[in-house]
Amino acid sequence: MTTTLLDYQTRMLDALRFGNWAAVSSSFAGESDRRSLGFRVYANNWMHALISALGDTFPAVRGALGEAAFVAIAVGYVRANPLARDELLMWYGSSFPDALDAASTVGAPSLADLARLEYAWLEAYHAPEASPLPPAALAALTPAQLVGARVHLHPSLRLRRSDHAVERVWQHYRSGGTRETAPPADGPACLAVFRPFAEVVVVRIPEPVHTALVRLATGTRFGDASLDLGRAEHLEELRALVAAGLFTKIETQPEGGSDQ
């Protein structure tokens, strides 16, 4: 029987995905035991590559779960969510946090949010370059100009809100901590993740600052976006983020003008 390339590749890919050697064993030449050994190598290679990719992207989740539990969850995820044809390995695992949510991992309700923080870190790490605005540029504005200004946030910025203080747990495993000494993830927490210069920074921010940044990100003018920043320390938090490089551009309208 003649087998087309398409038929062979379709059957081989399915057999590798589901570890079904019997379905393709007759598609290869050689002695039976050598053929099954060869199939095992290919079946291991792709699975290992995707589990390693998950481990690289979610090192804190891996640490929090422990190696055996992480691999068990990862194997199930990989079988159900193979790499899409045009997807890059570096981005693999975007739906892994949701899978952790669905798995309802006993005793670790913060795992999915921890994974969301790690994926936000990855996105910030590979985000486009942009030059942060010098803090002096903001200081040079009159109060009226500032109220009417629209700001461009750094393209690497990812904002996350969690019921759990996952950045403490993330920092613990990132600095080599063990499960035995892991801090509690008492929450809630709002986080700004961005890469103003060479390194990604993760900053815990008050809820009103988070709200203001979400508004600024959608083009709301500074005055309207910062309505809830009533307390002086919240304004100071925002100023510190600007000093850290959160803004890349500021657009002011002419004095007395309006483009509403």
Binding site: T4, L5, L6, Y8, Q9, T10, M12, L13, L16, R17, Y42, N45, W46, A49, L50, A53, P82, L83, A84, R85, D86, E87, L89
Partner: peptide, 22 residues
Amino acid sequence: SWSGIGQVLLPDLLPAPLNAES
């Protein structure tokens, strides 16, 4: 080698039959 067919890609270098079609 080949790695994907249809919508799925396995991140490995898989063997192809070496013949006129391939």
